[in-house]
Design a protein around this nucleic acid. Structure first.
Lengths: 334, 334
DNA sequence: CTCTTTTACGTAAACGTTTACTCTCTTTAT
DNA sequence: ATAAAGAGAGTAAACGTTTACGTAAAAGAG
């Protein structure tokens, strides 16, 4: 049995109230007493019990983080930012992998409530009404990352997906490309799907390039689907000179199939990704991509969450800047 | 204020003891009572408070996971396995990124103790005496993953690094290579450093290939260091035909410099990695490597940890099988 | 029908803290 | 010298559960 505050009190010949006071350095004790108490603490190797503490002040100093998939470089970068700032601010983080499964998500939401987390970061998935409802009843702060919701004022932090895709497409156009294909995510995905496809389309049109549906293919953001989409593309639109993928993984998948077909990047086909995962600079040739500063996004999300927790105020959403990272998979046609 | 068990009791016209009994479905109440209670629960939207529960039964159903770095595909795969099984078994996981920093590690250990986690998974770093000592005083179960320790009987789950490196080298030899270099990790790293270098060396010697120190270089397991090590190698031993890197990231770094020097893989130089991260199959050409089943390792670690928690028994360590994954970066010389 | 056992509860203590109240001394002001 | 104020401390309630113990009624045994 670990020593409790009671043991310390006994050893130091004071009441537990006094021990608690020096522990939380409040006022109301003499220097001698303080010293006695601290000695007792040291001797016993006493450590406060955060559970008991949490019970009484209704704060657990813990936040829950929900990911659609805890694997993948994407979540990993984000998590790193989250964990780091949370730790600096004396919060712990509990990870929850929803696997994009409604059942699991709901189960987790309930779990987080039972465990009395002080706030929740909800990542990468649309916040469905179903989830929003339970979040409402638990009345704890939530911030969305790389996500958004129609419901009320849940703050989010993300890049402007539409604009980022627009800029990426514009970049390709500025390099002289006009036969530009896109490997989009699922168009029913209101965050990483539709807006990016829309940005691509609008950028084309704004530059007098008519949208051609043969150039638009779909994947699920993962490597395999990028490969497959690229094969389809090569088949149905062999004249493309550039392809913009809605994720780095898909871009890399696409890259692998163009190589497999004996073509080269960027000489024959230029490829542009989205995310800037750590991997993007390791592949050969290094991937030109639009960067989402995931690490920073994680930090900002925690910052906002803690602000909500500690002040009770609502906070504003934040659009963070994306950035085009020029590496070696895009060739200038001019 | 969320409803408590007291509110439920009141609404159902029973004592809180009874509510608690139906909550934990123990015996000692009639069906009518049970129904009344359940109705009250539903109506109030009551959820038990795990903190209060934890206080009394000294179980938080939470485990702490310590990583040297929470980023990187490595930790990510491991975490996924851990999270998944933990969740199945009704445990939550708290992530702690030590950043390979002693101060942070100690701070975290203390934090985990205060938060009363039921067990700890300690990953990828040697368990120093300093840490072991505090772990001892907290008296909670620990399992090491991809790690080991001289101290007492802390169970671990990992691959046999020596053997895996031996096998990798043997594989290269079997493909007709004899001028085989290695990019090792830090030789003072008793887990991923020395044993792998030793395996490499012994495999060479067992096959009549004298060890040549020009062929042995060092990195820190990350991409950059692999690039740099490869440059040194090309300089000091331009006749190598194969290089075995102690991590996939370093292998990929090496691969990039080989390409940069105008050579090709595997035609001019064969490269073999270690880990089999998700990335390994995405690069071009796909990396031949020795696989550590990180996802499974994570699961096994949790399994063992929970067994220790729930039975109080000590458990055995486990060496999991590694596997050579043949892809396209190794050429047969014969 | 009486005695014993079982069932169905209620009461209250306990878990380890924090904190609102008290209370007793000093100190300071008048 | 006396009153007021403050410092240093203790007592006990509270947080939301679980659970040992007690007890009255119901059920079963004879």
């Amino acid at each position: 049995m670990n020593p409790t505050i009671k043991d310390v009190a006994q050893k130091a010949n004071v009441s537990i109230a006094t021990v608690s006071r020096v522990l939380n350095n409040l006022s109301g004790y003499s220097d001698k007493t303080k010293q006695k108490v601290n000695e007792a603490i040291k001797e016993l190797g006493y450590q406060p019990n955060a559970i008991a503490r949490g019970l009484i002040n209704k704060r657990t100093q813990t936040i829950g983080v929900m990911f659609p998939s805890v694997s993948g470089a994407f979540s990993s970068d984000l998590l790193k930012g989250i964990e780091e700032l949370a730790n600096d601010r004396n919060y712990s983080v509990m990870v929850c992998n929803t696997d994009q499964d409604g059942k699991r998500t709901l189960k987790y939401l309930q779990l987080l409530r039972e465990k009395q987390v002080d706030g929740i970061i909800y990542s990468s998935e649309v916040l469905k009404k179903e989830y929003y409802d339970v979040l409402e009843t638990m009345k704890i702060p939530v911030v969305l990352v790389s996500s958004q919701t129609e419901f009320a004022s849940v703050p989010y932090v993300k890049v402007d997906d539409y604009q980022a895709a627009y800029d990426a497409t514009l970049y390709l156009i500025s390099k002289g490309h006009s036969k530009i294909a896109m490997i989009s995510g699922n168009p029913s995905d209101a965050i990483a799907g539709a807006p990016r496809a829309e940005g691509y389309r609008k950028a084309l049109e704004a530059n007098g390039i008519p949208f051609d549906s043969r150039y638009l293919t779909f994947g699920d953001f993962l490597y395999e689907s990028g490969s497959i989409a690229m094969e389809a593309l090569l088949e149905q639109a062999p004249d493309v000179t550039a392809v913009f993928a809605a994720s780095d993984e898909m871009a890399i998948g696409a890259l692998s199939t163009v190589i497999k077909y004996g073509l080269s990047v960027p000489e024959d086909i230029s490829i542009m990704g989205y995310d800037d995962l750590g991997m993007a600079k390791m592949i050969i040739p290094p991937l030109t991509t639009v960067r989402q500063p995931l690490y920073d996004i994680g930090k900002i999300a925690v910052e906002k969450l803690i602000q909500m927790i500690e002040t009770g105020e609502t906070v504003d959403s934040k659009i963070v800047d994306h950035l085009i990272v020029e590496r070696q998979t895009v060739r200038s046609l001019t």
